[in-house]
Design a protein around this nucleic acid. Sequence first.
DNA 1: AAGACATATCGTATATCGGCGATACACATT
DNA 2: AATGTGTATCGCCGATATACGATATGTCTT
Lengths: 111, 111
Amino acid sequence: MVRTKAESQKCCTTGEKMSLPDVAWAEDLAKLTWAMAHPARVRIVRLLLNRTSCVCGEIVEEMPLAQSTVSQHLKILKETGLVQGEVDGPRVCYCINKDAMAKLKKLISKL
Amino acid sequence: MVRTKAESQKCCTTGEKMSLPDVAWAEDLAKLTWAMAHPARVRIVRLLLNRTSCVCGEIVEEMPLAQSTVSQHLKILKETGLVQGEVDGPRVCYCINKDAMAKLKKLISKL
DNA sequence: AAGACATATCGTATATCGGCGATACACATT
DNA sequence: AATGTGTATCGCCGATATACGATATGTCTT
């Protein structure tokens, strides 16, 4: 337990009636944050933001993980919509879905 | 697989050399996002932001979860620093750690 | 000291994650 | 058709998350 007083922030001041935050919204945000809740996925997103795009193989090279593992993480990022994959001949080119990223940033910033 | 072309966003344009994003930073962000990666925890945070503070029991009442489960989620939020608990007599009063929240928002916004 | 109350922790069951190698699949080239 | 290359999926495993009831801990009151 935290037994020390909160130093710079007051606690236990009031208790207004609160409106139940809608569950759907919470699940929405949780889904997005969950996608970013793994260092590998954070790095992948970061990678894709630094470059304009990235072929899957390049991502694998940058990560200390097996190709199949990276592919799994990419799948998760795709499912949450944060990343898009475009088939480019024999390879797949990934890029950030800016709309989804914007949504994540908005939801977090409006917390 | 995603087989459709990304409509409004160009993909596979260039491939600049990228600097490996530091792992520590990724782990930092992943830890914070992981704390928010569950609807129940998102709702708890939301709850604490709406009110200035909240006694544990009130949180339990608002959630469709057992008291022990809520306590577990609170523990996770405390461990990541997003929330602070202050013992107030027989009860515990929780509030948001604004510094940690600011850090989360900053890390996300600077993505 | 004893009881009532609030919260944390323990123990357990189940589900999901995260990792890998092996394999399947898709596309391009020969 | 056959081969090669790049990527996705499968099957498996250990580790961890999630949920709960039961119990322990701690704090007020009587």
